[in-house]
Amino acid sequence: MSRRTNFRHFPGFMALGLLCMFLLYAPLIIVMVYSFNDSISVTRFDSVSLRWYRDVFFGLEAGKFRQATFNSLTIAIGAATVSTVIATCASIAMLRAGRFRGKLLSFPLLSLPLMVPEIVTAVATLIFFSAIGFAAGHATILVAHIVFCIPFAYLPIAARMQSIESVYEQAAQDLYASRWDSFRLILLPLLMPGIISGFLLAFIISLDDFIITNFVKGAGVETLPTAIFGAAKQGIKPNIMAISTLLLLTSIVFVSLSYMFGRVESNNKRE
């Protein structure tokens, strides 16, 4: 060993990585800082206050944003739940049910929502609902989101399922467990981390969506992104920054949660 090189080290990579982090965080942190600005002018920083947070919760527009948050959450929970169930069933069929007719086409179909640019999905969905005369509302957003979320729920679940060997279930069946029992008692618990990350991913994707929602939302139904977009177009006011900061904190909580699930999972694996 004359020349001991560190194969994991490339000169400059660390600097680029730090630059990447800096670029990702600088705008977010600045908005966070300015959300505590007391001044109504967004550019001059006066003194620190929670004034705009009060405004978000109790101000004139509080009702609007509360309703939008409520809509966003219910739609995201609904869409994530339904798409996770659909995706779980589909991944069992794809990976645990042998060969069947149409299997070859099923994977492209499942990932189609990922391949179609969002604006195209939005237009197609709008035309579809208008052609069949279905009034836009909560339901149209929910349906569009379910479709859109399926691949996001499917990919983590299928990835997890692939890493679980089917010998456990086969052993259970050799011991006369019914298929339902082997699913419920063996596959499902092992699959749970995948299902949870699928659910969380679908949830966040639904919560995040602007383009499709903007096309298919019905009268009086505003989600958080559409409400924020409308407000931000008229000027990035301190209250928008306060909302942004709150959303940022929510995201941090979510990421932490998903990491906690991940931790539990890897601990279980070790045991």
Partner: peptide, 14 residues
């Protein structure tokens, strides 16, 4: 398992 049940439950309640 318990966690996921809790998530679904709160979804239903919401």
């Amino acid at each position: 398992m318990k966690n996921i049940r809790r998530i679904f439950l709160s979804a239903a309640v919401l």
